[in-house]
Computed example of a mutant assay.
Amino acid sequence: MRSAGTTGRCVILGAKVIRYSVTDTLSLRLPFGELIIQAWSLLKVTALPAVLMAIPFGAMVAVQLSGLVNEVGANSLVGSATGVAVLRQGAPVTAGLLMGGAAASAIASDFGARAIREELDALRTLGIDPVRRLVVPRFLALLLITPILVVIVIAMGVGAAFLIATLVNDVTPGSFWLSFGSFAKMIDVWFTLGKGFAFATIVAVISSQRGMEARGGPRGVADAVNASVVLNVLLIVVVNLAITQIQTMFFPMAVA
């Protein structure tokens, strides 16, 4: 029953966030200064980890697949295998996990601290909706930095895969990029961005909801941060699987 109630409150909060994001942006009531500050703060805690995660991920994929394709004499396909793996799965999942970890912790801890100091109740007493004033800017900030994180992961992951394939496994640069361009399509990029925006929505709503409902002092804040990270990672994996299945059904991989 508690899980059902929490899910219902998350759905209601998500609907409010989306509605206020549209109406406040169109009516110019959105606190744009807060939006820019939050976007920069979230980008600072996720950009460098994105680089540090993307490089070993691309290298790991290249090492594993290079050994496999070399066994069957098809090392010219290393570019397609590693590039498409990074583009379709590595980039959105890495960006999502970073948002679900670093960004979610920052959002949940901020709201949790405000909740135990009764700042949110004070805003409501003054007639200010915390969802419109605090949650919406963080939601839009995550949407704003999502394409940046995705591009960083794609560039670093494919670059690392290219270096491993050419320097270690003797794959010619021309065959790597030729096979990558033959299988990677723009629809993959759009699905990757779509996954990133979906993950950003999940992270913003869940982290805000768990932080705003924190109770019991500092331990309650820690519990809210832990719960938000766990729920975000779980939902990101499940949603990624669902979107990947839809992509595979309607847009199967084929030579461009």
Rank of each mutant, 00 (worst) to 15 (best):
residue 185 K to I: 12
residue 75 N to W: 03
residue 153 V to A: 06
residue 38 Q to D: 12
residue 72 V to Y: 15
residue 148 I to E: 01
residue 45 V to W: 09
residue 190 W to V: 14
residue 248 T to G: 05
residue 234 L to G: 05
residue 80 S to H: 10
residue 25 T to A: 14
residue 89 Q to D: 15
residue 3 S to Y: 12
residue 92 P to D: 07
residue 1 M to D: 08
residue 36 I to T: 10
residue 40 W to P: 00
residue 59 A to P: 09
residue 195 K to D: 00
residue 221 V to F: 06
residue 123 L to M: 15
residue 82 T to E: 06
residue 186 M to T: 15
residue 54 A to L: 11
residue 58 G to P: 05
residue 8 G to D: 07
residue 152 I to Q: 04
residue 90 G to W: 00
residue 236 I to K: 02
residue 256 A to C: 13
residue 67 G to Y: 12
residue 170 D to G: 00
residue 57 F to I: 11
residue 117 R to Y: 02
residue 214 A to W: 01
residue 91 A to F: 04
residue 45 V to N: 03
residue 229 V to E: 00
residue 158 V to C: 08
residue 49 P to R: 06
residue 158 V to N: 14
residue 177 W to S: 12
residue 101 G to N: 02
residue 146 T to S: 12
residue 147 P to E: 04
residue 191 F to K: 00
residue 12 I to N: 08
residue 131 V to C: 06
residue 21 S to A: 14
residue 13 L to H: 06
residue 240 N to I: 05
residue 186 M to I: 13
residue 8 G to I: 13
residue 13 L to D: 00
residue 125 T to K: 06
residue 98 L to S: 07
residue 221 V to E: 00
residue 91 A to S: 13
residue 187 I to R: 15
residue 35 L to S: 01
residue 38 Q to T: 03
residue 224 A to F: 02
residue 15 A to K: 13
residue 118 E to N: 09
residue 53 M to S: 13
residue 243 I to A: 01
residue 115 A to C: 10
residue 204 A to W: 00
residue 31 P to N: 11
residue 123 L to P: 04
residue 87 L to G: 10
residue 231 L to Y: 04
residue 26 L to S: 12
residue 163 L to Y: 13
residue 102 A to P: 03
residue 30 L to T: 04
residue 162 F to P: 01
residue 80 S to M: 12
residue 174 G to T: 12
residue 188 D to Q: 05
residue 231 L to C: 07
residue 162 F to K: 08
residue 19 R to N: 11
residue 13 L to I: 06
residue 193 L to F: 13
residue 144 L to F: 13
residue 39 A to W: 01
residue 127 G to F: 08
residue 116 I to D: 00
residue 87 L to I: 15
residue 124 R to K: 14
residue 176 F to L: 03
residue 229 V to W: 03
residue 55 I to M: 14
residue 94 T to H: 07
residue 154 I to R: 04
residue 179 S to I: 06
